[in-house]
Nucleic acid binder design. Structure first.
Lengths: 150, 150
DNA sequence: ATTGCTGCAAAGTCTTTGCATAGGA
DNA sequence: TCCTATGCAAAGACTTTGCAGCAAT
């Protein structure tokens, strides 16, 4: 299992943040640097509101509208993904754009990342062999619903 | 692949609808019978709005609020599921509560059902062997993103 | 100097709620 | 009859938009 999703992730360096924005072709504004940092640091796939709450600690003038616009531009640039969820509420974002799967905890509503190259291989091979009628698959994401233990 | 999702499904009989509601412990009101029928008949996992639009053809006085309340009670009773989607927009519903997977078409935004017992078996066996740290899985749903051909 | 981003506030979309009335068991 | 579901309309939650001023390249 990848990074645990109930603790803060290690803070990325400013240089790393700039690099990531540049790589996506986005201007490195103060707000974007901060928002990206919050997104990387916050556990459990945060909402725009949660990103704003945390970012506003350092930049109280940052508006929620800007957070929405910024997250949208991150998604458009492929820097961030939106997380699929059957529950209502706000949309949630994921700074990890590598292909991975999600564990949905029925009790806590957490969405936990799950990486497993072996599983990826199994799925890709299954569809390579079997194929899909009239459909060209690009990516696979397994949603595993259940309960976190302990 | 299961029932195609771009054409109407065959209409269920009134008796079948009553039975389904009774099985879920829900009163068989005119509105519920109609809403359930629309849900079963409409392709591609409709929104509350779409269910209302279709149902209102037969019962113009049916309100959108009632459709929302009814769909919520269907979900609570296990008669219907909400569909997970990373796209924004309205929540979408699925009358098929058996375990199955979804194809997400990037172009048309359609969500197409995909059933494959062989795939189910493959996934279940993978996790039976491998296990998940601190997590008890209940169900698996594979999200396949890609493009519908032709 | 340009170009695009930000902040603000207003508007928009989707969903929920409260309550009086109607309808099913 | 009793109790829940419905319809209506208002409120609520979440998100988007327009525009003037500002910051990054």
């Amino acid at each position: 299992m990848s990074t645990p999703s109930d603790t803060l992730h290690p803070a990325p360096t400013p240089a790393h943040l700039r690099e990531r924005l540049a790589g996506a072709g986005l201007r490195a504004t103060q707000q974007r640097l901060l928002i990206l940092e919050c997104l990387l640091v916050l556990p459990g796939h945060p909402t725009a509101e949660q990103v704003h709450r945390r970012a506003a600690e350092q930049a109280p003038s940052l508006s929620l509208g800007t957070v929405y616009k910024t997250l949208d531009s991150f998604v458009a640039a492929g820097l961030t993904k939106r997380v699929a969820s059957a529950e209502g509420g706000s949309r949630r974002f994921d700074a990890d754009c590598t292909e991975h799967h999600h564990l949905f905890c029925t009790n806590t509503q957490e969405i936990i990342d799950y990486c497993d190259p072996q599983l990826d291989k199994l799925i890709r091979e299954f569809f390579a062999t079997k194929g899909l009628a009239n459909f060209q698959p690009h990516s696979f994401s397994l949603h595993i619903t259940g309960d976190k233990l302990q």
